[in-house]
Design a protein around this nucleic acid. Sequence first.
DNA 1: TGAACTATTGAACAACAGCTCATATATTGA
DNA 2: TCAATATATGAGCTGTTGTTCAATAGTTCA
Lengths: 118, 118
Amino acid sequence: MAKERDVCEVFYADKEKVKKVKTRMIGDKTAAGLAEIFKVLGDPTRVKILHVLSIEELCVCDISAILEMTESAISHQLRLLRNLKLVKFRREGRVVYYSLDDRHVTKLIKMGVEHERE
Amino acid sequence: MAKERDVCEVFYADKEKVKKVKTRMIGDKTAAGLAEIFKVLGDPTRVKILHVLSIEELCVCDISAILEMTESAISHQLRLLRNLKLVKFRREGRVVYYSLDDRHVTKLIKMGVEHERE
DNA sequence: TGAACTATTGAACAACAGCTCATATATTGA
DNA sequence: TCAATATATGAGCTGTTGTTCAATAGTTCA
């Protein structure tokens, strides 16, 4: 178990290797940040929302109709995407139009699609 | 609400737009598959595991020492990564060495890091 | 102003995810 | 064969997530 190993410091499978890799490892914050981005894309509904928005600017009502889900569910997800600055919005009368606000996300999704094809 | 709209089919904010985007939308399976990949990367522990494996082939014991987590926790995550064919392994006596088995994943993580920097 | 409409929000709830702990499996070497 | 070691696995617990439902906030127009 990890704790005992920390104490006696003798029986790593390869102590030098461990030391070396440990210095090159990404920090907790970086890992957490990375995971956060990917977590957003780790849900079918959000993937769909981002994908349809990559085609065209759309209002909540339209997205709801396209995905065949309640406006409430869509709105909840949009709030999340908004907070993470992945989408932006503009109000036009009663209607709120959403569109993508992050070039990286589209790239990531495209890469994902590529991965899927194999 | 979505249900009523399906019945009367009259008051989309933009019916034509909805129709058009709907035909171009990715299918449920594609969305689910995409989300599955990203979901795997959406956890700090797995991000770290994949990252250290991108540096070097390592055994469970080493990964456990590097991340300072129990071997059990690491093993559980490795099983997941194994099932999704993101890592491969080879046995050498009592020791099991893991390494990356998917070139896309490394790319995705690199893109994520790039995203982080801004 | 008030009715109709679009979108947002909060609470609640069920499903899920990641860890721990105990146990099991596999390999080695005495 | 048996003890020691390395990893894997299952059950259980806790915190998180995505949806629904009901209520609320903005906006338009009569």
